[in-house]
C-alpha cells in the first residue's frame, strides 16, 4: 500500500474501484443514432443544441444556488433540478454530435474529452443556442422560482409533443424529460403561490421577479427556422404551437396567486437575432468564462 496517497489506502491501490473517471463512457452507448431519412443532420444537430443549451445553461445557473438557498431542503431541490437538466443536456449534446460531428469543436489530437463535453466547454457564447431566459444572472429566491416556472411550463409542453418525434433518440429523451419537468413545474408553481400569499415582502419580490423576467418569456414560444423545418419533418416541435397551452397553465397559477399578467413587451433581438441565433446578453459570456475555465486550461485532460 502506498501511504503517500490516502486514496490508495482507501481503495487498496485498485484504481478500477473508482466510481468515476475510470474510462470514457458514452451516454448513448448502443443507442441507434442514425439520422432519420429525409432529415438534414446539420439541422437536427442545431435543434439538439437549442434544446440542450437551454438545459445546460439553466442547469449551471441552478447549480450556482448550491449552499445559497434559504433552506437546506430547497437547496437540495434546486440541485436535483439542476442535475435533471444537466442529464438532459448531456444526452441532447451527445445526440447533436452524433447527428453532425462537424458541430463539435476540434481539440488537440488524442484528447480524451468526449464530444458532449467539447460542446459544453469549448464553444464561445456566440455558438450557444439557448434562450436568453436561461442565462440571465441569478437574483433572489423569487427570481429562481419565476425563472423555473416560465421555463418548465413551456419546456414540458414541448417535450410532451417531442416524445412522438420521428427521431427515436429525441423521442426517448423527451419522454424521460416529461417525467422530470412535471416535478420541476409543480415545485415552481407551489413556491410561486407560497411567495404570492406569504408576506408583503415575499409578494413584492415575486411580482418584481415576474416583471423583470417577463420580457424573456416570449423567446420560449417563438419559432426559429430550424424548429419550423424539423417540425415539418415530424422530428421537432414548433414552440409557437404550445403558446396557448403555456398561457393557460400560467394563467392558472396567476389566478390562484392573484397576480396580474405583466404588460411588458418581449425583449427585442439585435437585428432580429436572439439567443437561438447565438445573440446573447453579456451574462452568458461571464457565466461560461467561469464554467469553462478549467476544462479549457486542460484540453487533453481526463476527468
Amino acid at each position: 500500500m502506498n501511504h503517500d496517497s490516502v486514496y490508495d489506502g482507501l481503495l487498496g491501490g485498485d484504481s478500477s474501484q473508482w466510481a468515476f473517471g475510470t474510462d470514457f463512457e458514452d451516454p448513448l452507448a448502443g443507442v441507434d443514432t442514425t439520422v432519420p431519412a429525409g432529415v438534414d443532420g446539420g439541422e437536427l444537430a442545431a435543434y439538439c443544441l437549442m434544446l440542450g443549451d437551454d438545459t445546460l445553461v439553466l442547469s449551471q445557473r441552478l447549480a450556482e444556488w448550491c449552499s445559497r438557498a434559504p433552506e437546506l431542503e430547497e437547496d437540495i431541490a434546486l440541485a436535483n433540478m439542476a442535475l435533471d437538466l444537466l442529464g438532459q443536456a448531456r444526452l441532447l449534446l451527445a445526440r447533436a454530435a452524433a447527428a453532425d460531428p462537424a458541430v463539435v469543436p476540434v481539440l488537440p489530437a488524442g484528447s480524451p474529452v468526449p464530444a458532449e463535453d467539447a460542446l459544453a466547454f469549448f464553444r464561445e457564447a456566440g455558438q450557444f443556442r439557448n434562450v436568453r431566459l436561461a442565462e440571465v444572472v441569478n437574483g433572489d429566491f423569487a427570481h429562481v422560482v419565476v425563472r423555473l416556472l416560465l421555463f418548465s411550463i413551456a419546456r414540458l409542453a414541448v417535450l410532451q409533443r417531442l416524445s412522438g418525434s420521428g427521431d427515436a433518440v429525441l423521442a426517448a429523451v423527451a419522454a424521460k424529460g416529461v417525467k422530470e419537468l412535471t416535478y420541476h413545474r409543480d415545485w415552481a408553481g407551489r413556491w410561486f403561490l407560497t411567495l404570492a400569499q406569504g408576506t408583503e415582502e415575499s409578494r413584492k419580490r415575486l411580482v418584481s421577479a415576474l416583471e423583470q423576467l417577463w420580457p424573456l418569456r416570449d423567446e420560449l414560444v417563438t419559432a426559429h427556422p430550424v424548429e419550423l423545418s424539423l417540425a415539418a419533418a415530424g422530428v421537432g416541435v414548433d414552440p409557437a404551437g404550445v403558446r396557448d397551452e403555456t398561457d393557460a397553465v400560467l394563467d392558472q397559477v396567476l389566478a390562484v396567486a392573484e397576480v396580474d399578467r405583466p404588460q411588458r413587451a418581449p425583449l427585442a433581438g439585435i437585428g432580429g437575432r436572439t439567443g437561438r441565433d447565438g445573440m446573447h446578453t453579456e451574462a452568458l459570456s461571464r457565466m461560461l468564462a467561469e464554467m469553462q475555465v478549467v476544462a479549457r486550461a486542460h484540453p487533453s485532460g481526463r476527468w
Binding site: V173, K176, G177
Partner: peptide
C-alpha cells in the same frame, strides 16, 4: 432512472 443519474457510471463499472 433519471436523465442525470450519476450512478449510471458506477453501475456500468
Amino acid at each position: 432512472t433519471y436523465s442525470g443519474c450519476p450512478a449510471m457510471a458506477t453501475m456500468r463499472d
